[in-house]
């Protein structure tokens, strides 16, 4: 049985401008010790699906469908119920560490709180474990620096604190929402290596949410590409990079600025993502797609599973593409 299985997840927001369908019909599974990367542009619904799984949607958000963690239904369950699974079962690392940490609490208090709440440890034990965890994520002089406030750390160190805090209860699944987007490349490399290392050692699964295909290439097993709230393609990482099957994935891969090519002519996907307030009938990518046919304008393609060269993958597109 999969560790996490999401089935037909829909997320919508009621706003003063109308209903925004942020996530539509999202289904996927995460197995034990697997890394699933969710890729997409801003507004593609990658963060909102993570928030829906964790029960963290904004008050005007509404999620339907099913999210099962080890067989337990999580969606729309009361906070008390979710709190037993948060941190111990599923933990989350947020993009903006400074905003996610409480600015009024010392790191020590924020970290021990987690252990005291979930495991009923004494303050002294909790502090010792927190310091050990900060050591593990390579924060120098953890014993003294745990007394500091979040703003006294650099961006990379704040992200390390967040990761340490997420790992405190040894979760089975870590959701990392753009963990390195706000950081410098050198720090990004360190943080991603650190995450990969602890993940291996703790045998933890991870959902890695990012827009950086370089990070995806280095650190994931399976990739799911989201566009306008829908999955357009899903495949094992090597397959996706070798033979992308959806026009959007092809466009994304072609438009990445790469260090390892000489070519200076850069492909750009024309246009911009659709407005999610307006519900289209056809494929959400149709306006920007160079392969589009008549049918794409009227009918939204379903996500179809298929096998190619002994690899099971899926894509949502009406057009045959030989890449």
């Amino acid at each position: 049985m999969a560790l996490l299985s999401v089935d037909q997840l829909n997320v919508r927001f009621d706003t003063s401008d109308g209903v925004v369908h942020a996530v539509r019909g999202l289904s996927f599974e995460v197995n034990a010790s697997e890394v699933l990367a969710i890729v997409g542009e801003s507004g593609s619904g990658k963060s909102q699906s993570a928030f829906a799984i964790m029960g963290l949607l904004a008050s005007n958000g509404n999620a339907t469908g099913s999210v099962q963690f080890k067989g337990d239904e999580l969606l729309n369950k009361p906070t008390d119920y979710l709190n037993r699974i948060r941190a111990t079962g599923i933990a989350m690392v947020f993009q903006d560490a400074l905003a996610a940490l409480n600015p009024y609490m010392r790191i020590a208090d924020q970290m021990t709180e987690v252990l005291v709440y979930h495991f009923g440890l004494s303050q002294r034990e909790a502090l010792a474990q927190s310091i050990a965890m900060l050591d593990a994520v390579r924060i120098p002089d953890a014993k003294n620096r745990i007394r500091l406030f979040p703003h006294e750390f650099s961006g990379g160190m704040q992200q390390r604190v967040m990761i340490a805090m997420a790992l405190l209860c040894k979760p089975a699944l870590l959701i990392a929402d753009e963990p390195t987007t706000a950081l410098d490349v050198t720090v990004q490399a360190e943080i991603m290596d650190l995450l990969a290392e602890v993940r291996r050692e703790m045998n933890m699964s991870m959902i890695l949410i990012t827009h950086d295909l370089g990070v995806v290439a280095g650190y994931s097993d399976t990739v799911m590409v989201l566009y306008a709230g829908q999955v357009v393609e899903s495949a094992p990482v090597q397959t996706l990079f070798d033979s992308p099957g959806h026009p959007y994935t092809i466009g994304l891969l072609n438009s990445i600025l790469r260090l390892d090519t000489e070519d200076n002519a850069l492909y750009a996907i024309p246009g911009t993502p659709p407005n999610l307030l307006l519900r289209q009938s056809g494929c959400p990518f149709v306006e920007r797609c160079e392969f589009a046919i008549e049918r794409c304008h009227s009918e939204n393609p379903a996500l179809n599973e298929y096998r190619l060269e002994n690899v099971t993958r899926s894509r949502a597109c009406h057009v045959e593409i030989n890449s």
């Binding site: 120098p140 050198t186 490399a189 990079f241 990445i256 790469r258 260090l259």
Partner: peptide
């Protein structure tokens, strides 16, 4: 050299096999 080696390459094989120069500590 460290800056260049830290840029993730959008290619799973290359990205996993390349040698990375790590910087020590913080700025």
């Amino acid at each position: 050299q460290a800056l260049i080696s830290a840029v993730p390459l959008p290619d799973p094989q290359q990205e996993r096999s390349k040698k990375r120069i790590l910087l020590l500590g913080d700025m």
